[in-house]
Design a protein around this nucleic acid. Structure first.
Ligand code: ATP
Length: 845
DNA sequence: CCTTAGGATGTTTTT
DNA sequence: CATCCTAAGG
C-alpha cells in the first residue's frame, strides 16, 4: 500500500494504526472520518494480516456501503469483496436468513414497511374493536416502535404501564396482537430486524460466539445516529475481542425521531473501558467562510463535546442569504441560479427540510428545463405498482404473508371482495391449531371445500393455479429452497414480467389511463432491471433474498451520480454527502426549524444540528434562501427568516431581507409602510400551539416578532442593495418567471433518459398523474406529450430501431392495443422489452 | 361486489 | 391541499 502519510494526516494515520481495542474517532464534519474507516480496513488486511472476512464495517446507507467496498477494493484488490460492509439492517437480514428458524420463523420471512405495518394495525384495531378516533394507528405504531427500541416485549410493556392509563392498556393489547399477526405472517418489521438479531444472540450463545469470532474487527460509521438496539448489537458482537472502532460527530446526530441515542457516542468511553479517543480537527471539505458559518450556528448548542475544526481553504466565496417574497419566487430564483451559475448540475444540490418543498422546485426545474433528480418523497418501493408486484412475489416466496395476499388477491379485479375474504378468514381461524396456522393462501386452495362457489370460487382456484405454476418454475430453476434442476430455465425477471403480463395486472394498469400506465410500467421495468442486477451478483439467487434486499433499499441508494443532474433532497438525505455548491432553501422559522421543534429545547438543538449538517455539505459555495410567504396546508403563512440565519454573524454572510409585513397588510399588498422588525428571539409560544392555519393568530404573533428585530436586519445589511423596499424586487426574480414556460419541453427530453430512474418518473405518476384535472402548474406539454396514440408508426416488424435508453434493437411485433400500440423489441444490449409506442419514442434507423 | 362521492383528517425528518 | 376512509348507489 502507498504510504499512509501521503493520504492521511497525522491523526488520521493514528486512527488507522490503532487497530486493537476500542477506539472512538470524534470529529467534526468533513474531517475525513469516513476516509479513516476505508483506510483502516485496508490497513488491517494489508498490514496486520487480518482476514477480510473477519472485518465488519457498518455504514449508514447501502450506497455508502457500496462506495466503501469499492474504495477498499481499489486499495487491496479483490479480497475486499470478502469484507462485510453493510448497514445494520442489511447485516441483520443476512444473519437472520441463516438463523431465524431458531426463533420460530422461516428464512423466507417478509419484511413489512410502514405501509404494511399500518395495514396490520388496521386489522388489529378491527379485531380489538378500537375506534380510530380515540387512538391513532400511527400513534400506536410509534409507541410500539419505541417500546421495541427499549427492548420491551408486549408482556413487559404491559407490566410497566404506569397505573391504569386506558390508552396505554389498549396499546399494550395492540402490541400483543400486532406481534402475533406478524409472527403468523412470518413477517418482521424494520425494528424487528435489529431486535430479533439481538434476541437470537441472547437465546443462542453459540450463534453469538460464531459471529464474535467471525467479526474480530468491527467498524461503525455515523455512530452518533445509532439507536439502543444497534448499540446492543455492537456491544455483543464486540464483546469478545473488543476491537471496535466507531467514528462520528455528536453535532451531526439528526435521527433522534427514529430512536437514535446521542448517549451512545457521548459515553462510548464508559461503555468500552479503556477506549482511546482520537479527534480530527482539519476539515478538508469546505472553504473557511462556509466552515465559519457552520461553527457559528452549532456554537449555539449546549452540552457538546468540544471539537476544533479548521481548514486550509482560506477565504472562498461569500456565503449568502436572501429572502424572497413568495415561495415561488424563491424556487424560481434558485433554479435560475442553478442553471446560470456556470457549474455543472451534477455539482449542485438543493436541500430542504421537508419533502413537500420539493414540489415548487420541481415545477421550476421543469419550466426552465433543468435536469434534476429528487431523492425521497414517496419511496420507490412504496409505489403502488411496485408494492403490488412485490406482493405477488411475497406470496410466492412466503405464503404465510396474509398482508400480501389480501393486497393482491383482488388486483386485478377478480370479483373477490370482503365477503369472500371473510369466509377465508373464518376458515383459516377455525382450522388453525397451535402447531399449524392456516394461512389465507392455504384457505384459498380449499375454496371448494369451504363452500365458496360461483365466480369467486373459480377465480380463487385460478389464482392458486397461477401461483403454483410460478412456484414450480421457480423451484425447478432453484429460486426457492430446493436445488436447481435447470438454473437457466427461469429467472426473477421473467417472473416479474409474467406477473405483469399473465395475471391481468398489466392490463388493469393500462385502463387507468396512458400517462399513469406508462409511469407504472416504467417503474416495473426498473424493478425488473433491479432483479437482473441482483441475479448477476448473487452466487445462488433466491427469490426471498431478493425480496429482502429490495425491502431495505432507501431512497438515497438510488441516487444517480453519473448523470448531470441537480440533486434535490431533504437535509436528512444529504448526510455524509458533499457538493461544490449547496442551496439551503426554505430557511424560515416554522419550517426550519419546524414549528414543532421550537418549544422543545432538545428538538431545537437537533434542528440546529441538521442545519450544521446542511451547511457543511458545501465545498465551495453556499446559498441560503427563504420566502416571506408560503403556502402551508392550503393557506398562506407569513414567515420570518430562520433563527439560524440570525445566528450567523453578519460579517460571515451577506444577508438580504425584506421588511416584515405590517399587521393589516395582505401578503401581496404593498409592504413598505409597516416595516416593523422581528428577529432574534423567537420565543417559545409563537408556533407553540400552532394548530392548523389559525391565520389571524399566527399573523398577530408574527407581528410581535416583527416589532423587535428588523432594525438589526436593516442596519446590518446596509451593504446589500436595498434590503428595504425589496418586496417588489422579490418580484423581479419572478420577472423571468413567465418566460420560463417556453415550450419545447417534452417528456422525452429527459423523462426517459437516466433521469427516468428517479424523481420525475415516479412523481408524475403519484402526484401529478391524477392531477390532470387541475392544472397544477405543470406545463401542458408535460401532461400530454407522449400520451396520444400515434396514428401510425414509422417502423414495422423487422425494422431496426433505437431507444433512448436501451439502444439498438429489432422490432419483433406490434400489437394494436386499445389505447396504444404495444411494441416488442429485441435489443442488442437489454434483451427483449415490451413497450408502448407513444411512449418509447423509438426511432427507425 | 364494485364504483364514486363526499367528508373528515392531518404533516417534519426514514431504515 | 391531499390523502385516506366511509357510506351510499349501481
Ligand atoms: N487527509 C486528507 N487529505 C485530503 N483530503 C481529505 C483527507 N481526509 C479527507 N479528505 C477529503 O475530505 C472530504 C471529507 O471526508 P469524509 O467524507 O471522510 O469526512 P467525514 O468526516 O466522514 O465527513 P462527515 O462527517 O461530513 O460525514 C472528502 O472529500 C475527503 O476526500
Amino acid at each position: 500500500m502507498e504510504n499512509l502519510e501521503s493520504i492521511l494526516n497525522k491523526e488520521q494515520c493514528e486512527a488507522v494504526r490503532e487497530t486493537e481495542g476500542p477506539l472512538l474517532v470524534l470529529a467534526g464534519a468533513g474531517s475525513g472520518k469516513t476516509r479513516v474507516l476505508t483506510h483502516r480496513i485496508a490497513y488491517l488486511i494489508e498490514n496486520c494480516g487480518v482476514q477480510p472476512w473477519n472485518i465488519l464495517a457498518i455504514t449508514f446507507t447501502n450506497k455508502a456501503a457500496g462506495e466503501m467496498r469499492d474504495r477498499v477494493d481499489k486499495i487491496v484488490g479483490l479480497r475486499g469483496r470478502e469484507v462485510w460492509v453493510s448497514t445494520f439492517h442489511s447485516m441483520c437480514v443476512r444473519i437472520l436468513r441463516r438463523h431465524i428458524d431458531r426463533l420460530g420463523y422461516n428464512s423466507d420471512f417478509s419484511i413489512y414497511d410502514t405501509d404494511d405495518q399500518r395495514t396490520v394495525m388496521r386489522k388489529v384495531f378491527k379485531d380489538l374493536n378500537i375506534d380510530s378516533k380515540n387512538l391513532k394507528e400511527r400513534a400506536v405504531l410509534a409507541a410500539i416502535s419505541k417500546a421495541k427500541n427499549e427492548g420491551l416485549t408486549p408482556v413487559e410493556y404491559r407490566d410497566q404501564i404506569s397505573g391504569g392509563d386506558y390508552n396505554e392498556k389498549k396499546i399494550a393489547e395492540c402490541f400483543t396482537l400486532y406481534e402475533k399477526i406478524l409472527h403468523q405472517n412470518n413477517a418482521v418489521d424494520f425494528d424487528d430486524l435489529l431486535l430479533k438479531t439481538v434476541e437470537l444472540f441472547d437465546t443462542e450463545p453459540e450463534v453469538l460466539e460464531y459471529y464474535q469470532e467471525r467479526f474480530k474487527y468491527i467498524l461503525v460509521d455515523e455512530y452518533q445516529d445509532t439507536n439502543d438496539i444497534q448499540f446492543n448489537l455492537v456491544d455483543k458482537l464486540a464483546g469478545k475481542y473488543k476491537n471496535i472502532c466507531v467514528v462520528g460527530d455528536d453535532d451531526q446526530s439528526i435521527y433522534k425521531f427514529r430512536g437514535a441515542n446521542l448517549e451512545n457516542i457521548l459515553s462510548f468511553e464508559k461503555s468500552f473501558p479503556g477506549a482511546k479517543v482520537i479527534k480530527l480537527e482539519q476539515n478538508y471539505r469546505s472553504t473557511e467562510k462556509i466552515l465559519d458559518c457552520a461553527n457559528a450556528v452549532i456554537a449555539h448548542n449546549t452540552g457538546r463535546k468540544q471539537k476544533r475544526l479548521w481548514t486550509d481553504h482560506k477565504g472562498g466565496k461569500d456565503v449568502t442569504f436572501k429572502e424572497f417574497d413568495g415561495a415561488n419566487d424563491e424556487a424560481n430564483a434558485v433554479i435560475r441560479e442553478v442553471k446560470d451559475c456556470g457549474r455543472s448540475y451534477h455539482d449542485q444540490a438543493i436541500l430542504y427540510r421537508t419533502n413537500a418543498q420539493s414540489r415548487l422546485l420541481e415545477e421550476q426545474c421543469i419550466k426552465m428545463n433543468v435536469p434534476y433528480q429528487i431523492i425521497g418523497g414517496v419511496n420507490f418501493y412504496q409505489r403502488r405498482e411496485i408494492k403490488d408486484v412485490l406482493a405477488y412475489m411475497k406470496i410466492i416466496a412466503n405464503d404465510s404473508d396474509n398482508v400480501a395476499f389480501e393486497r393482491i388477491i383482488n388486483v386485478p379485479k377478480r370479483g373477490i371482495g370482503e365477503a369472500t375474504l371473510e369466509k377465508l378468514r373464518v376458515f383459516a381461524a377455525a382450522n388453525s391449531t397451535s402447531e399449524h396456522t392456516v394461512t389465507m393462501y392455504e384457505a384459498a386452495t380449499k375454496a371448494g371445500i369451504i363452500g365458496i362457489g360461483g365466480k369467486a370460487g373459480k377465480m380463487l382456484q385460478e389464482f392458486v393455479n397461477m401461483v403454483e405454476n410460478w412456484k414450480d418454475k421457480l423451484r425447478y430453476a432453484g429460486y426457492l429452497n430446493e436445488k436447481a434442476v435447470d438454473e437457466d430455465s427461469y429467472s426473477i425477471q421473467r417472473l416479474i414480467e409474467s406477473i405483469r403480463d399473465d395475471s391481468g395486472y398489466g392490463e388493469e394498469i393500462k385502463l387507468e389511463g396512458v400517462v399513469e400506465a406508462e409511469t407504472r410500467f416504467q417503474n416495473i421495468e426498473e424493478i425488473i432491471s433491479k432483479a437482473s442486477d441482483y441475479q448477476k451478483n448473487a452466487e445462488e439467487p433466491k427469490l426471498s433474498e431478493f425480496l429482502e434486499e429490495v425491502s431495505l433499499v432507501a431512497d438515497i441508494d438510488r441516487k444517480d451520480d453519473n448523470t448531470d443532474l441537480v440533486t434535490l433532497m431533504t437535509l436528512h438525505g444529504a448526510k455524509g454527502l458533499e457538493f461544490p455548491k449547496v442551496y439551503l432553501v426554505g430557511m424560515s422559522d416554522g419550517l426550519f426549524p419546524g414549528y414543532k421543534s421550537m418549544n422543545e429545547h432538545d428538538d431545537l438543538e437537533e434542528e440546529r444540528r441538521l442545519c450544521y449538517v446542511g451547511i457543511t455539505r458545501a465545498q465551495d459555495e453556499l446559498v441560503m434562501t427563504s420566502a416571506r410567504t408560503r403556502m402551508v396546508n392550503g393557506n398562506y403563512e407569513r414567515m420570518k427568516p430562520s433563527m439560524f440565519i440570525d445566528e450567523i454573524p453578519d460579517e460571515l454572510c451577506q444577508k438580504t431581507t425584506l421588511n416584515r409585513y405590517g399587521e393589516d397588510e395582505m401578503p401581496f399588498a404593498d409592504a413598505f409602510g409597516g416595516g416593523s422588525f422581528g428577529g432574534g428571539s423567537f420565543g417559545g409560544s409563537s408556533y407553540g400551539s400552532g394548530s392548523y392555519g389559525d391565520y389571524r393568530k399566527s399573523r398577530r404573533e408574527n407581528q410581535r416578532y416583527d416589532e423587535r428585530d428588523e432594525y438589526r436586519h436593516d442596519d446590518d445589511f446596509g451593504n446589500v442593495i436595498g434590503g428595504r423596499g425589496n418586496s417588489h424586487s422579490g418580484r423581479n426574480s419572478s420577472g423571468g418567471f413567465s418566460g420560463g414556460s417556453s415550450g419545447g419541453f417534452g417528456v422525452n427530453s429527459y423523462g426517459l433518459s437516466g433521469m427516468g430512474s428517479t424523481g420525475y418518473t415516479g412523481r408524475s405518476g403519484s402526484s401529478y398523474g391524477s392531477g390532470r384535472k387541475s392544472g397544477s402548474g405543470i406545463p401542458k406539454s408535460l401532461q400530454t406529450t407522449g400520451v396520444q396514440k400515434l396514428s401510425s408508426l414509422d417502423y414495422k416488424v423487422g425494422d431496426t430501431v433505437s431507444h433512448i435508453k436501451f439502444g439498438k434493437g429489432t422490432v419483433l411485433s406490434i400489437v394494436d392495443g386499445k389505447k396504444d400500440y404495444e411494441v416488442t423489441v429485441d435489443f442488442e444490449k437489454a434483451g427483449q422489452k415490451k413497450m408502448f409506442a407513444s411512449f418509447a419514442k423509438l426511432k427507425k434507423i
